[in-house]
Simulated scan of single mutants.
Amino acid sequence: MQLVVARIGRAHGIKGEVTVEVRTDEPELRLAPGAVLATEPASAGPLTIETGRVHSGRLLLRFEGVSDRNAAEALRNTLLIAEVDPDELPEGEDEYYDHQLMDLDVVTKDGVEVGRITEISHLPTQDLFVVERPDGTEVMIPFVEEIVTEIDLEEQRAVIDPPPGLIDDRAEIASSRDDSARNDSAGDDSA
């Protein structure tokens, strides 16, 4: 099975290095020197990682045969894809591969059906489940422990405890002002 493990960013320097947006929890395994990765678009690869290093908090990679800035820049926005055994599981206890989460039924802790996971969106701050509801609309659920309380792969479901307003229109509006302070200042005419 193929998994997207990174997206190539801009060129770095003049010797063919590129920045990468890592999309795997195991970059030391998937993006190590010597790794051969398929690409999307396929015409850009396959690419073999020659070197890797961290610079100012960003992973920089150099690929075999890519030796200058122009060649590196031509790879921008290319997805890097690793071949992974479908039975392989992540090392961490509460870690999952995207393919394990796709098509899981999403229910609230009270058993109310919300929908089915159709996509996982990887954002810089957190991941989101894109959930298709039975009526065809979509809702985005942050994949954080406080909201997604259980992933049950055997039962093929994700249990959520959503805050008000996340999956319905019962949002609670909180004011930063105190009602009594507003009333006091409304009658104050000492200007």
Rank of each mutant, 00 (worst) to 15 (best):
A11Q: 07
E50N: 05
E113V: 13
E28W: 09
I167W: 02
M140A: 09
M140S: 13
T48N: 03
P164S: 08
F129G: 00
A191K: 15
L59N: 01
T118D: 10
L80A: 02
D127L: 05
V131Q: 02
Y96I: 07
F129I: 01
D68M: 05
G57R: 06
P33M: 05
V54N: 09
D161W: 04
G115K: 03
T78N: 04
Q100I: 02
G57M: 10
G45L: 04
R170W: 06
L89N: 07
T125L: 11
K109F: 08
E119M: 09
I8Q: 01
V18N: 02
E119K: 13
I160N: 00
T48K: 10
G136C: 09
E146S: 12
L75D: 02
D85H: 06
V18R: 00
A191N: 12
G111Q: 12
T149I: 14
E132T: 11
A186C: 05
Y96S: 03
T51C: 04
N77V: 07
P41F: 14
E119S: 10
I14C: 09
V84S: 01
S176Y: 15
L128K: 05
R30Q: 06
P46H: 07
V159R: 08
A82L: 06
G52Y: 01
L31N: 01
G65V: 05
L61T: 01
R10S: 15
Q126H: 15
I81T: 06
A171Q: 10
S176R: 13
V159W: 05
E119I: 00
E145T: 11
T125R: 14
D168S: 15
V54M: 12
E40R: 13
S190I: 12
R76F: 07
S121G: 12
L153Q: 08
D168K: 09
V54P: 00
M1R: 11
V106P: 01
E91S: 13
V159K: 05
L59H: 02
E132I: 06
S121H: 12
V84I: 10
D98E: 15
D161E: 14
L75E: 00
P164H: 08
R58T: 08
A158P: 03
V36C: 06
R116N: 11
R30H: 10
Q156C: 03
I167V: 13
A72H: 03
P142W: 04
V22W: 00
R177D: 14
N77L: 13
A35N: 12
G45R: 00
A42L: 10
E64H: 11
S121R: 11
G45S: 06
L37T: 00
V107A: 13
R177G: 12
E64P: 00
D87K: 13
L89M: 14
T78G: 01
T137D: 14
V18K: 00
E132H: 06
V54S: 07
L79G: 04
V139S: 08
S175Q: 10
H122L: 13
G57L: 08
N183M: 12
E119W: 06
R76W: 05
R157S: 02
E88Y: 09
L80V: 02
R182F: 14
D98N: 09
Y96L: 04
D189H: 14
T149L: 07
A11C: 08
P33E: 03
R157H: 05
E88C: 08
I14M: 15
T39Q: 04
